[in-house]
């Protein structure tokens, strides 16, 4: 296993991996949160309708 990176290259490697992780997490988590929020809103609307009907 490598003990460490060449200090001249390390900032480029960490920046590349860091940017990628942020972009991918944002791409993945954004729609998951949106779906959850929409479901919660629709559930609340459904509950309101049921209460009205009863």
């Amino acid at each position: 296993m490598n003990a460490g990176f060449n200090p001249d290259h390390a900032p480029f490697i960490f920046a590349a991996y860091g940017i990628s992780m942020v972009v991918l997490l944002w791409t993945a988590i954004g729609p998951l949160l949106k779906e959850r929020k929409l479901k919660r809103m629709l559930k609340a609307a459904l509950r309101r309708e049921e209460q009205k009907a009863s």
Partner: peptide, 14 residues
């Protein structure tokens, strides 16, 4: 884990 590249050094890990 993978070794350092003989020509590009560690930057190739990108």
């Amino acid at each position: 884990v993978v070794p350092t590249d003989y020509l590009q050094g560690d930057s190739y890990r990108i």
